[in-house]
Write a protein that binds this DNA or RNA. Sequence first.
DNA 1: CTGAAAGCGCTAACAT
DNA 2: ATGTTAGCGCTTTCAG
Lengths: 369, 369
Amino acid sequence: MATMQDVARLAQVSVSTVSYVLTGARPISQATRDKVLAAMAELDYQPNAMARGLASRRSRIVGLLLPMDERGLGATETAFVTGAAAGASAAGYHLVLAPIGVGDRDELRRLASQRMFDGALLMEVQLRDPRVDVLRELGVPLVLIGRTADTTDLSYVDIDFDRTVAEAVGHLVDLGHRRIVYVNHSAGTIAEGYGPALRTRDAFTAAMAAHGLEPLMIPAEDSAAGGRSALATALRQAPDLTAILAMNESAVFGLLGELHRRGLRVPDDVSVISMVTSPQVAELATPALTAMNSPGTALGRIAIETLLRHVDGGHREIHQQLLPCALQVRGSSGPPRTAGTAYPGAGGRQRPGPGSRAARRSAATARRP
Amino acid sequence: MATMQDVARLAQVSVSTVSYVLTGARPISQATRDKVLAAMAELDYQPNAMARGLASRRSRIVGLLLPMDERGLGATETAFVTGAAAGASAAGYHLVLAPIGVGDRDELRRLASQRMFDGALLMEVQLRDPRVDVLRELGVPLVLIGRTADTTDLSYVDIDFDRTVAEAVGHLVDLGHRRIVYVNHSAGTIAEGYGPALRTRDAFTAAMAAHGLEPLMIPAEDSAAGGRSALATALRQAPDLTAILAMNESAVFGLLGELHRRGLRVPDDVSVISMVTSPQVAELATPALTAMNSPGTALGRIAIETLLRHVDGGHREIHQQLLPCALQVRGSSGPPRTAGTAYPGAGGRQRPGPGSRAARRSAATARRP
DNA sequence: CTGAAAGCGCTAACAT
DNA sequence: ATGTTAGCGCTTTCAG
C-alpha cells in the first residue's frame, strides 16, 4: 500500500505538496500537479482514511441514528436510509448505521465522544429528543429527519403533513365524498407524542373543517389486525362513511381485507387512500392503493446534503424544509356510490353497480346540499 | 475533549499503561488499573477513534456492500441490514452502508484501499462476483450473504433453499396437492445467474421429483403485474393446478389479486405459499400468506459475527452456514378442493364450498391414484 | 508556489 | 508490572 511519502518521492516533491494537490487547500502549479497526479496513478495511491481523519479531525463519516429495536424498518424508512447512503457516498462520505434511539442517550454520548462522526442524521425523532441535546453539547452537527417540538436553531427535513393531508382530503372531497374517516396510528403512539400521528391528526381536523365537514379519527395498531378492528370501529361510529384515509401502511391492508370480508367493494362502496406510503407497497394491494407517495429517498438525500453543508462549510444557517407526499391515484379511490347524481361534474369513474349499502349512506346523503 | 495524555497525567502513570488497560493487551495490576479507570471516569475520557485506528491499523469499521440502484430494499434485505448493524454495534464495531454492487469494481477498489474497512459483508451476491476478487487481493476479510458459484476458501451464510423448497413442497403435498406450480423471479434474473432463482428452481424440480410429481416453473417479473400475468400463464399451462409456490414478494400479491379477480378463492381453490418472505409482508395479504419466513435478522447477525471472527482473531477457518426459512402456516394454504375425499387424513380445513372449477381440475383428479 | 517540520492521539515494540 | 519512545500517514502551520 503506497503512502503519501512514496508519491512525494516518486514525484520529487514534498509530502505537503502531495497533500495540497489532494485537498486543494492551496494553489499548485499545473506542472507539479501533473507530476504528482502521475505518481499517484503510477502507485495506485489512495489516501489512508484513518491518517487523514486523525490529522484533519474530520472522519468523513456521518452517523445515521435510528432505533432498530422494533420489527424492522418500513419501506418509507428504508427509503430514507438508502437515500442518505447514496447521498453520502456521492459526496465522498461514509454513512454509519447506528442503532441509537431516543432512549440511548449515554450510548450516543459515548459514540459521539469518540469523534468518529463528523455529523449525524436523526431518524424517528420524538417531539422531545434527548439525542439532540447530547450532540449539541458535544458540538456534533446534526439534521433531523422529522421534527422535535422546538426546532429553534435546528435543521430538519420532514414530510409536509399539512399539505399531504389537505391534498388527500381534497381529492376525496372533489370526488364527492363527505363522510371521511381518518385511521391514524395507535392511541399509544399518539399519546407518547409521535409527531406524524399528531400532525396528521390536526391537519385532518383542519382540512375537514375547511370543507365544512366533521372529522372522525380512529386510532389503529400498526398491523393488519389493527386495521381490521379500526374498520369495525369506523363503521360503528360512522355507518355512513364513504371514504377512509389511512396513515398506517400495515393497518391499511387489514382494513382492505376487512372491507372485502364484509362485502364492501373498493372503491365502489368505500374509497381508501393510504398516506405516506411507498409506491412499492401501494402496488401490492388489490386494487392498487391510491396513495400519498412518501418522498423517502429525496428526504434522505436532502438531509445528507444539508448535514454536509454544515459539516463541510461550517455553514451555520439552519435549513428547514418540508416535502409533501404526492398524490398518486391508483385503483382504491373513486366517487362515492351516489356521487354521480349529486355531483355530476366531480370527475372519476361512475360505477353505480348493485346497491347494498343504501340504508347506511342515508345520513351522508342527507348532509348534502 | 480529554486525551490519553490527560488520563495518564491525572492517574500518574504513563500513556502506555492507560492504553494497555484499555486494550487489555498486557497485564496491569489491579491498583493501577483502578487509578486509571478512575481518571478516565473523572475526565469522561473516550478514546479517539481515528487515532486508535491509525495506530492499530484497525478501524473497527466494517462495510456492508450492497447495490442500491434499483427500487429500494425488500423487507428481507432490510432485515439483513438491521441484523448486521445490531450485531456490529453489539461487538463495538461500526457498520458502514456502502452502495456498491457487483458492477462497482473500481469504486470498491478505491474504497477498500483507503483502509477504512476492517472487513466487508457482501449482499446481493452474484454467482460470479468481482467484489470478492478485489477484496481478496487487498487482503480485506469478507463474508458473503449469499453464495458465489465457487465458494472455496470463502465464508458465507445463506438461506438453505433446498430445505426451504423441500419443506414448502412437503407441506403442500401433505395437504394433498399434486399439481403445484412454482412462480420464480423473472427470466432475465434467472438468465443473469441470480443464485436464489437458480437454486430454488433446481430444488423445486428435485422436490417434486421426490414426490413423483411433475414440476412446472413460471418466471415472473418482480411486480404485481408480473404476478398477474404469471398466474394467467400458469392457468394456461396447468389448468388443473391447485397450489402455487411463489418466490417473489411483489409478484405474489399480484397473483393473489388476479386469483381473486378470476373468482378463485384462496386457499379453497388454490393454495399459495410465499417463499423467503418476512412475516410483516406475509401478514399484509388477505388471507395472510402461509410462507417460509426468511431468517433475515439472524443471517445478518451470524454474518457479522463470522466476519468479526475473521477480523479480530485472524481466524482463518472458513465458516459456511445455511439457514432454512421456517414454514409458518397462515391462511393461504389448505387442502385442495377434492382432497377431503382423496386424502381423508391429510389434515387442515375441509371447505367444499360451491364448485366452480370442477372441469378444470379433471386432469389433476385423473392423475390421482 | 513549494518545502520542512510539528503534531493529530493512540498503539506497540523495546526497555527495565 | 510499568515506562519510554518511535512511529501510524496525513494535515497544516511556519518559512521561504
